[in-house]
């Protein structure tokens, strides 16, 4: 079957890809466009490692059709650093040892970013709720929650391009 062209903004740049009709956004990002931040964990919506922002809101790219993303704004953890300067969430994840193997980290950073865009001063419970769709098998969550709360208090929180208040 013929490939289908799709165009969307990825981390602020216009990108295009030729995809199969039932291809997932996760496959297009990783195989087609070389963005390896979102990972393939379960392919079932259960682990959250494939989470990306679509128009500022968290979505599971393993369950999203690429052809449904025409004209959308997609953001992944790859777009969070500004050159050599880490995003405050990334800096706080390092500071708090919130990554061990790192497999869950891009998904955690992405849902945390969406939370802080909407709610710059979340409570601990709101942080726990925000990461509740993301599984980490190493850190035990506590350092992740601490890192997100610390980033919320840190100066220089940048908003994602598609964030509601952007």
């Amino acid at each position: 079957m013929a490939k289908i062209p799709v165009q969307f903004r990825l981390n602020g740049s216009d990108r295009a890809a030729f995809v199969d009709a039932p291809e997932t956004l996760l496959n297009t990002l990783r195989r087609g466009l070389g963005d390896f931040a979102p990972k393939y964990g379960c392919g079932q919506g259960a682990c959250g490692v494939c989470t990306v922002l679509i128009d500022g809101e968290p979505h599971l790219s393993c369950l999203t059709l690429s052809v449904a993303c025409e004209g959308k704004r997609i953001e992944t953890a790859s777009g969070m650093a500004d050159g050599p300067d880490l995003h405050p969430l990334q800096a706080q994840f390092m500071e708090h040892f919130a990554a061990q193997c790192g497999f869950c980290t891009p998904g955690m950073l992405t849902v945390a970013r969406a939370l802080l865009d909407r709610n710059p001063n979340p409570t601990r419970d709101e942080v726990i709720e925000a990461i509740s769709g993301n599984i980490c098998r190493c850190t035990g969550y506590e350092p992740i929650v601490a890192a997100i709360l610390a980033a919320a208090g840190s100066p220089g929180m940048r908003r994602s391009e598609g964030g509601r208040h952007a």
Binding site: G48, I54, P58, V111, G133
Partner: peptide, 9 residues
């Protein structure tokens, strides 16, 4: 229903 990303879908 699920976590935040599931709820957006």
């Amino acid at each position: 229903i699920g976590g935040p990303a599931v709820r957006n879908m």
